[in-house]
Simulated scan of single mutants.
Amino acid sequence: MIGFVGIIVVFVMVFGGYLAAGGKMGIIIKALPFEMTMIGGAAVGAFLISNSMSAVKQTAGDLGRVFKGPKWAHDDYRDLLCLLFELIRLARQNPVAIEEHIEAPEESTIFTKYSKILSDAEVIALICDTMRSASMNYDDPHQVEEVLEKRMEANMHHALHSSHALQTVADGLPALGIVAAVLGIIKTMGSIDQPPEVLGKLIGGALVGTFLGVFLAYGFVGPFAAKVKTVTEEDGHFYQLVREVLVANLHAHATNICIEVGRQNTPSHCRPSFSELEDALKAVKQGAA
């Protein structure tokens, strides 16, 4: 919702101020379709040239995150901690029994209780691969932590590609606006024999290109890139939480301590309170009893 509010504020403040200063929309409206075709078309074409098809699809999908916000909310972090609690407790009580859950999580009675988490292939793979490594005596906490860190760095680098691609477009839009403006000036020079009132409208139309390039770059595409980056980095905390809990488990801390490590590494606005998490874990224990 706040994204839509921001768009409205941008339009109202820019064009409202222009009209309040005595500006006329006629020239802008008349030139807008042609300038938008040149600038927008060139920006889209440059974007397609510089990115693969998978990156294009990823960016198109990530644009919706500007309005939806982060994927993971407060309840999801609580559920993740409960899921990890169940898995760690079972792994310590019966190392053999945990195998059926990490080998086929989509059929697991534990994982299926958390459908939203189960739908994320990466978080499930992260949990299962790490716990599988531990079951194979690959239990050097520092080595596992290093492997997880490199894996998450690679995943984050890939996830941030949309933001970088959008920022590249934003950086190029002012220059594309100048290109459109130059073409408008060329058109104006071809009509140099016309009276001043005609030339004035032609020059005004040409300057719309410069305005539009800067307006789109700093009013929309740049902020979109920044928001996609912010949302992606915030969702990355969900995976970091998995790493913190599972590494604490490899250090052989008590199960409750492992979960508390994860709780305290949860972003403050998504962090469940101690009592809230304790109640959720009690419910998990009662369900398993």
Rank of each mutant, 00 (worst) to 15 (best):
F15W: 12
D139W: 05
K30N: 12
E197P: 09
E153Y: 12
R271G: 08
D235G: 02
Q93Y: 11
E100Y: 05
R89T: 15
Q286M: 11
Q167Y: 13
L166I: 02
D62T: 07
A181D: 04
I39N: 01
H164I: 13
F220L: 12
S275I: 14
L250V: 07
V66Y: 06
D120L: 04
T130Q: 10
K68A: 02
A165C: 08
P70L: 08
V245K: 02
P141W: 06
L183I: 15
A226S: 12
H74G: 04
Q93E: 10
V12K: 00
M13R: 01
G172E: 07
S135T: 13
M189I: 14
Q58A: 13
T266F: 10
L160D: 06
E35P: 05
I117T: 07
L183A: 09
T232N: 00
T130F: 10
K24H: 15
M38Q: 12
E197S: 14
N256P: 04
G172W: 06
G22A: 03
I88H: 01
E107T: 13
T255P: 01
T210W: 02
V10P: 04
E103L: 12
L166P: 01
L84F: 10
F215N: 00
V12D: 03
P105N: 06
I7A: 06
A97G: 06
L87Q: 01
Q194R: 13
I2V: 13
L241C: 15
E234V: 10
K150N: 14
V245P: 01
G190Y: 05
V56K: 01
G205P: 07
P95A: 09
E197V: 14
G213H: 09
E149R: 14
S115C: 02
A121L: 08
T37A: 15
E107K: 15
R78N: 12
G17D: 08
A248D: 07
I192G: 02
L32F: 15
G287A: 06
C82V: 15
A60D: 05
G16A: 03
I88Y: 01
D140L: 13
A289D: 12
Q167R: 14
L250C: 05
C82K: 03
Y18S: 00
G45D: 11
K201A: 13
G45M: 11
I124P: 05
I185Y: 03
G222P: 06
P272D: 11
E146V: 11
T112Y: 06
Q240F: 09
K187S: 14
V198N: 12
R151N: 11
V231D: 00
L84P: 03
P174N: 00
G184Y: 10
L246M: 12
I8M: 12
A226V: 14
L199N: 04
V228P: 03
F67Q: 02
A121R: 10
L246V: 10
P223V: 09
S52H: 00
R65C: 04
